[in-house]
């Protein structure tokens, strides 16, 4: 289980990385924390000809905050996010979710940008960013753009990022101090990818809309209109019937019944937590 051959690049700054990406396009992969990419390469499920290691690019690291949002550099590692007082105060949901990500040794390397760019449907970080109405910051040699998270995930491990773009960070609106949330996931074992998860983030002054996200179910994390419509109201049985239909639409294989059951349970418990 050894990777196929590749050329290794270790740019020291973002412009150099973007130039390499512009030059190699689809033949290149960007190496961030590598906690998912390295296994894929070792199993030769992906075989980039050029590997662009961005770990030495300091401008991609760190957490900053302004009045309305927290900006997290793409190369910020999970452990750093967990240790951040800024995150604990302004985006506690993110820290809560990251405690479910794998194990300490993995969190010491894994990055928020890598997780978003990989867009694993069972991963916590993309789901939390979706629940928090984050904006993904992408840059290419041509310039920078912000992508609303609602249009970022395109399908199974597919995103809005173009071949010549690097995800440089994510802006997450601060949660009002009074805002509550619920995060529940069910994994077979501690640290495993979720069988399913439900996140409820009721609207507040920063993000007025109710947002409810289901993950681990289907090709991407997705917002549940059934749950969003029910948040803050008395819940009728048909909410969960509607949720089950949403699950059925997202899951096309024989696990659909199972997923519908566990999502319903998680959603009931999440709703109860907010009640």
């Amino acid at each position: 289980m050894k990777p196929a051959r590749f050329n290794y690049h270790r740019p020291g700054n973002l412009p150099d990385a973007l130039a390499l990406l512009a030059e190699h396009g689809g033949a290149a992969r960007v190496l961030a924390g590598g906690q998912s990419l390295m296994p894929l390469m070792a199993m030769r499920l992906t075989r980039p000809e050029e590997l662009i290691d961005i770990n030495r690019i300091d401008e991609l690291k760190g957490i900053t905050a302004d009045d309305t949002a927290v900006t997290i550099g793409a190369l910020t590692r999970y452990t750093e996010i967990l240790r951040s007082e800024v995150i604990a105060a302004a985006v506690p949901l993110l820290a809560e979710a990251i405690r479910h990500v794998a194990h300490h040794a993995i969190r010491n390397r894994g990055t928020i940008g890598g997780s978003l760019a990989l867009a694993d449907p069972s991963a916590e970080t993309p789901a939390v960013c979706l629940a928090l109405a984050a904006r993904v910051i992408a840059r290419s040699a041509a310039g920078e753009r912000e992508i609303p998270i609602d249009s970022f995930f395109h399908g199974l491990m597919a995103t809005e990022l173009a071949e010549d773009e690097i995800l440089v960070g994510v802006r997450i609106p601060k949660r009002a101090a009074s805002a509550r949330h619920a995060f529940l996931e069910f994994a077979r074992r501690r640290g495993d990818f979720a069988q399913a998860g439900v996140i409820l983030a009721p609207g507040h002054t920063g993000v007025p809309e109710n947002r409810a996200v289901v993950f681990g179910v289907g090709a991407t994390a997705w917002r549940s209109s059934a749950l969003e419509g029910a948040m803050g109201r008395n819940i009728a049985d048909d909410v969960y019937a509607a949720l089950r239909l949403e699950v059925a639409a997202a899951v096309e294989d024989e696990t659909a019944d199972y997923k519908a059951r566990i999502v319903t349970t998680l959603a009931e418990r999440a709703m109860a937590r907010l009640a």
């Binding site: 296994p39 199993m43 077979r188 074992r189 501690r190 640290g191 495993d192 990818f193």
Partner: peptide, 13 residues
């Protein structure tokens, strides 16, 4: 195919 799919007991379980 992998240790991600074939689950063996971990200390927490």
């Amino acid at each position: 195919g992998t240790l991600m799919d074939y689950l063996v007991p971990l200390a927490t379980e």
